[in-house]
Computed example of a mutant assay.
Amino acid sequence: MSFIRTFHGDMDPSKLGFTYSHEHIVCRPPYWIEQKKDDLLLDDKEKSKLDVLDFQKLGGQAIVDATAVDYGRDIQAVKEIAEETGITIIGTAGFNKSFLWDASIPEHVKKVTGDYATYYQWIDAKSVNELADFVIREIEEGLEGTGIRGGQVKFGTGYNRITPLEEKTLRAVSIAHHETKAPMHSHTEAGTMGLEQIELLQKENVNLEYMSFGHMDRNPDPYYHEQIAQTGAYLSFDGISKIKYAPESTRIQCILELVKKGYEDQILVSGDTARKSYYKHYDYGLGLEYIIGKWVPRFIDEAYKNGFDGEKLIDKFFIENPARCFTFKK
């Protein structure tokens, strides 16, 4: 039995449609609240909804909300957006990266994590199996006890390092994956430590065909990308539009290099649109419409100039590959 688990319930993977594979819709990360970084707070449901509607008007059908518990999810607001727009949304269980764990745990989250002051204290105090049980409940019962079940499990590591607590959450998420068969996703800070994550996942007997590695375009290294692709994992190029990190030509070149090597079935594309200044209806940014409206036509043009069928590749990156990647196989 295969299905994709969404805010609307479980669905046939063939019904998923055109999908952004890594976004953030409504969230108030406790760490960024404490740092007074308002740009990183997506805290207005109606403004987020307008960007989702822009995506939908151009043919978008589904969004993976990659917001884990430690990044300030607003599950009710995202549920309402899913209901009011008809967009399919996939939620995320698990964890992010260690520096975020210095933040205080919000009162509503303490009901499901326990009475700890910070995420660091909670993750440090709990055993691997106890953390795994938390993730399993979020997949099988509901995110933060809401009854809205997560559609993937996530862990993360920092820039050029993996801390002991990050390894602990990786192991917990691996256990949860084995128990639930949920697809797995990882945060790689600036695209680093993917190969080191793979070494740890192999020790946990994870089939890497269930994995997607995030932020691969932050480390635009074709050799590195090929090493990850050889494991059967998905590579998420989810920094589209972020020219401060690299021009679009670099991202497209990296993607086409993987296509040339035969890995087109393992590529995901999204924007990780996690700032007010990235959203059109918060702060005049390019918004959720940019990839489908502007980047896709450019990619198709460049693909054809390089001898590839651009439309066919877009169908793979946004329809066929997400439908496989985010499927529970029980």
Rank of each mutant, 00 (worst) to 15 (best):
I4Q: 05
D10N: 14
M11T: 04
K15W: 02
K15M: 12
L16Q: 09
I25M: 09
V26T: 10
V26P: 07
C27I: 09
C27N: 14
L41F: 01
D43G: 04
D43A: 07
K45Q: 14
D51I: 00
L58M: 14
Q61C: 09
T67A: 11
G72T: 12
I75D: 11
A77D: 15
A77E: 11
K79L: 11
A93Y: 10
S98K: 07
F99I: 11
F99M: 13
L100K: 08
A103F: 02
A103W: 03
A103K: 02
E107G: 04
K111H: 10
V112R: 12
T113N: 01
Q121D: 15
D124S: 10
V128K: 13
N129A: 12
I136F: 06
E138Y: 11
E140Y: 00
G142W: 02
G145R: 08
G145L: 12
K154G: 02
G156K: 05
G158H: 03
Y159S: 05
T163E: 08
P164F: 14
A172Y: 02
S174K: 00
S174Q: 02
A176N: 07
H177F: 06
T180C: 12
A182E: 13
P183V: 09
P183Q: 09
M184K: 02
E189H: 10
M193V: 05
E196I: 00
E196R: 01
N205T: 01
V206M: 09
Y210G: 01
M211E: 14
M211K: 07
S212Q: 12
F213Y: 13
H215A: 05
H215L: 05
R218L: 12
Y223H: 15
Y224G: 04
I228R: 11
A229C: 07
Y234G: 01
D238C: 05
I243G: 00
I243R: 11
I243D: 14
I243Q: 14
Y245S: 11
A246L: 14
R251W: 13
C254P: 05
V259W: 02
I267P: 03
D272R: 08
Y278M: 14
K280N: 11
Y282S: 10
D283Q: 14
L288W: 10
G293M: 06
K294M: 10
K294N: 14
V296L: 06
V296C: 09
P297V: 01
R298I: 10
K305V: 00
N306A: 04
F308K: 01
F308G: 00
F308T: 01
D309M: 06
L313M: 07
I314Y: 08
R324S: 08
F326S: 03
